[in-house]
């Protein structure tokens, strides 16, 4: 997991007035702008069963006029039925001639625009407000089930150090929350979890049978039908130690809002205001770091990294940024991308 920033752009309408300035700190839910109610659209031609051309003259008449909500915009007798259309909102009417429709815009800026996430206002312009939020991110290996809604992170410290079993199955997970689990070792536990639990689960690591079942069931029609809960595996295939390591950094993020980005394969955590944990002071500057190889042939083999990365020519012909490693088999230089630092 690493610290990062996330920029949220709040687009503004023509009549919106920002109520924050550059550099202001905003909390989630704070008012950042005032503006009129969103424009209301009235499908004039379709309601009165007119063609766009037939409605053109009527629409031209309405253009620029004030109207109150509920007032009649027009009526037309079609066969035995009289069709009427009334204004859906109060405001000034503008026409959409090619659509045979009317847009009604309110001039009163009595609607508030709220910040969705806490952060610092980076830029205020006519068209948008940009808010930069401090976030934590971590990449994940793979997912299974329905992971479209992640929600708030729920931490049960007891589950961060032991594997989940059928006996330690969580029973009271708040709805719309994501529970953090260290490890799942057997299929029975996975099946119990997918049968009984709801919500989303972040799991540090899983064993190979569990990973295969998870990925295969997600692919299969049965898995889609069964509405599997969302499962996000952070470190991929591994043992309990890997799982514990992967979820350890989540400990301080209880209550954080999580966003899953499928395209970037990353989870973004937005901690509740004021509770951002202290920055990790990892061993990045140390001369020697312990690490684990992650290329398939040397998967999970521990090694040590010495000094700064160098560019090396591999025997496959690729020139890549490499770490000087010791304690692992193969070449003295391992591609930096192949090692995961502890």
């Amino acid at each position: 997991m690493f610290r990062d920033t996330m920029e949220t752009i709040y687009p503004l309408g023509d009549s919106d007035v920002p109520s924050v300035r550059q550099g202001d700190t905003v909390a989630a839910g704070d008012v950042i702008a005032h503006g009129p109610e969103p424009a209301a659209i009235a499908a004039y031609a379709a309601t009165l069963r007119l063609s766009v051309d037939e409605a053109a003259d009527d629409l031209a008449r309405h253009h620029g006029r004030e109207i109150k909500a509920g007032n009649s915009l027009g009526m037309r007798r079609v066969g035995l039925v009289t069709r009427t259309i009334s204004a859906p909102a109060t405001g000034t009417m503008h026409t959409l001639p090619r659509s045979g429709a009317l847009v009604i815009r309110s001039d009163r800026a009595d609607c508030e625009r709220h910040a969705r996430y806490a952060g610092i206002v980076r830029d205020v312009r006519e068209e948008a407000i940009a808010v930069t939020s401090a976030v934590a991110r971590c990449v994940y290996a793979f997912t299974g089930g329905d992971t479209r809604h992640v929600g708030q992170i729920h931490i049960d410290p007891a589950l961060l150090k032991v594997p989940l079993t059928t006996k330690t199955m969580p029973r009271s997970v708040p709805s719309a929350s994501s529970l953090i689990l260290a490890h799942i070792a057997d299929l029975a536990t996975l099946h119990a979890l997918t049968r009984s639990a709801r919500g989303t689960f972040f799991i540090g690591s899983v064993t190979e049978p569990v990973a295969w079942s998870l990925l295969s069931r997600s692919e299969s029609r049965e898995g889609r039908r069964a509405h599997m809960p969302g499962i996000i595996v952070l470190s991929g295939v591994g043992d309990l130690a890997h799982g514990v390591h992967a979820v350890a950094s989540f400990r301080d993020y209880h209550g954080a809002h999580a966003i899953l980005d499928r395209l970037a394969h990353a989870v973004t955590l937005m901690p509740p205001a004021g509770t951002f944990p202290e920055a990790d002071t990892g061993p990045e500057d140390a001369d020697q770091q312990s690490a684990i190889r992650r290329d398939p042939a040397n998967y999970d083999i521990p090694c040590e990294i010495h000094g700064a990365p160098v560019v090396a020519l591999l025997h496959t012909g690729a020139r890549v940024l490499c770490a000087r490693t010791s304690g692992s088999p193969g070449e003295r230089f391992a591609p930096s991308q192949n090692v995961r630092r502890d």
């Binding site: 990973a211 591994g238 398939p296 998967y299 496959t316 591609p335 995961r340």
Partner: peptide
């Protein structure tokens, strides 16, 4: 096993002949 390891860490640059 190979596929699961690869999916777990897909950014790895393959250096081993068997890989």
């Amino acid at each position: 096993t190979w596929a699961l390891r690869r999916v777990s860490w897909p950014m790895a640059i393959l250096t081993d002949d068997e890989d």
